[in-house]
Write a protein that binds this DNA or RNA. Structure first.
Lengths: 217, 217, 217, 217
DNA sequence: CATGAATGAGGGTTCATTCAT
DNA sequence: CATGAATGAACCCTCATTCAT
């Protein structure tokens, strides 16, 4: 879990990037409020004063992290999602599409886990972070996924008797518990080792925990 | 979210209890590392020095909180669970049993949410907390639930083609996302308003997101 | 100018007194904003943190100083003034009364010069300090002195064709310039050396700078 | 009190002038030690580094200000004073001459009040500033005013039984207290509103506070 | 056992000054 | 000459911890 966050693809001054990376790294190790600006500066290889040229207050570093998280999610998670999905949905069935998406998302979350850990831990206590999370990520993602779900529904691939929100939540819930278990409770986790587990998980998402006799014929 | 944690049923010196309650309350509001011993003392109605009679360091307060959380979960969640389940399983079907359990669990989590929020936020960063969580709660719960699941399986009420762990995870995942959404993103949430939502959720857990035509006949 | 302010007669906790004294001493040497809390603590013989048990912020130390200055002025300058004046006015003429008062006041200001220097320098820039100065000292003193002046007027000892305020200002002006010159521009000033100067000054206050031929006969 | 100090008549590089003006303005608002080089630079419209091309250290800015103050006083206050006085003294009596001078001086001090406030506040604490003040302004002014006073004395217009220094001090004292009251304790002060007050003040300076019956006949 | 005054290390932040561009 | 990013010492202030009462 050495948190080599790579913000290099972002268009930021070198030092600002290094400060953000250092902040994420250290916050990932001990939580944002336990990360000191002095340590962040040291890890970033800048003077402590330099931090405050780029971020007015320590809290603003966190906002900077959030902003990057939002950008990454917007660019990579949501938009890339759509493309992948719409390329695939014609040829493949729901099971395969879901697997593609989840595997991809797992890789992404794994890569940005330090960042997400920080954001989540802060969201637990600060409404403003939660609001940013909601407005920029959750509601945006919802708006993107909804049409896809409606499309699936119209093709008879998902239930129509249930609010799509709740089905999405099922996927998200499975996803997060899986992630949490792997990242927090499993040492040296490798996604490739878990393919079977993911298949099973998708099976449960799609068909539930009830016996399958009636369904599969 | 006014966090009236009540530790009164626990066998602790009055002051220790009040310190723990105060620590939970304040940590619930701003996170443990942002809670100061001075504020905890004030809220607990004791002198600051008194805290250090009961807890060698501030971190030990957290361990105290963990310990209580573990006791509560052991006593209430796991054991009470079993009793309820085993009383009911003969008469009721899976759907009803699940709903009973979940509703009860929701109420519990809601009541102890402050404590859980603190534990979770700390577990995000401290392996020792995670280990305590795992050994005392997760693995214990697993051991308790597994036989029940096996029993369900033998009665043909749940799938046998899937590792029970993964099915449990599905339930847990749905549970946590629901809890998270309600407690963190919904103002003035009341569980009673959500019964329909819970029914749908259970439907998805049991039958998945795929269309139900073949299944229900 | 070694500023041995002595607040011992004031009813304050020992440490608070020492902090105030140290703050006055150091501010007297370099100005309040150049005095650091670390140096104040060192001079007061307390830990830096101790300062903040007694004064919430550094600025509050200044308010503390102001408060003491106001108390001293209220108790010593204004009230004692009155007593002295009313004891003497029957027997002595204006010249003697003025001299008594001024000499006494000079001694006092000299003793509390460090404190006054700090207050004045802050008053130059901060309206709130000026307001405190005005309400607690200036207007209070005015109210005390005015009746005395009116009394003098009714006895034909001072002019009635001029607003008493302006006459008081003349005394105050002479007083301050004298003080300023002695304390700031004269090394090792001793008041006793200046008696003749004070006599002359009083002569000018009373009779002005115009030739005295017509007057003295 | 918007401190539009205008140093334009001085022979200085444009940027140096702007830096000095900005320094005076800001120091006038919050005191020199609370004025930051960054704010001075911003107000002057130059880069922060540029300040240090013209002034080796921040303290040197203050010396620069002092120097300008001295020049202004030398040029305007003292020299112009003389001219005015010597032009008028033949035709007018002491009262009128004094009024002319004071009114003119008031206008000047008002205009340069920001600069004076800074100089005075610094002089309170720094002997080197006091020394500069003394050598360049006080003693110079004295030397200029003394002959004028002697001249007045020889014409029987001022007392001869009193050290002229003390009479001058009376004028200066009245002057400063008046200025202080108007500039620091009066909102939106306009000199023109105070003509009567100034007349009274001059009356007190000239004739003192004692009753005038004997004198005026 | 309980207190809370006292501590001082270390927190976030500011700012005069430097120097590569 | 002018710039402004970078610096780091020093600032004010907080807080877990101690200890005399």
């Amino acid at each position: 879990m050495d948190s080599n966050i790579d913000l290099s693809e972002l268009d930021l001054p070198d030092k600002e990037k290094r400060i953000l990376e250092a902040a994420i790294q250290i916050s990932n190790e001990k939580g944002f409020s336990s990360a000191t600006t002095s340590e962040i500066a040291k890890r970033a290889g800048v003077a402590e004063g330099t931090i405050f040229r780029y971020f007015k207050t320590k809290k603003d570093i966190l906002h900077g992290v959030m902003l990057q998280a939002i950008k990454i999610v917007s660019n990579k998670v949501v938009i890339a999602s759509l493309e992948k999905i719409f390329k695939n949905e014609e040829q493949k069935d729901l099971r395969t599409v879901l697997k593609d998406i989840l595997m991809d998302r797992f890789n992404l979350v794994q890569k940005f886990f330090p960042m997400f850990r920080v954001v989540i831990s802060e969201a637990l206590f600060h409404k403003d972070i939660r609001d940013a999370l909601f407005e920029n990520i959750i509601s945006k993602s919802s708006k993107t996924i909804m049409p896809f779900f409606n499309d699936l529904a119209s093709k008879g691939q998902v239930r129509t008797d249930i609010d799509p929100m709740i089905m999405i939540r099922s996927m998200v819930g499975n996803f997060f518990v899986f992630i949490g278990q792997k990242m927090l409770f499993t040492d040296n986790f490798k996604l490739s080792d878990s393919e079977k587990e993911i298949d099973s998980m998708i099976a449960v998402i799609i068909d539930g925990i009830s016996p399958q006799h009636s369904k599969n014929n």
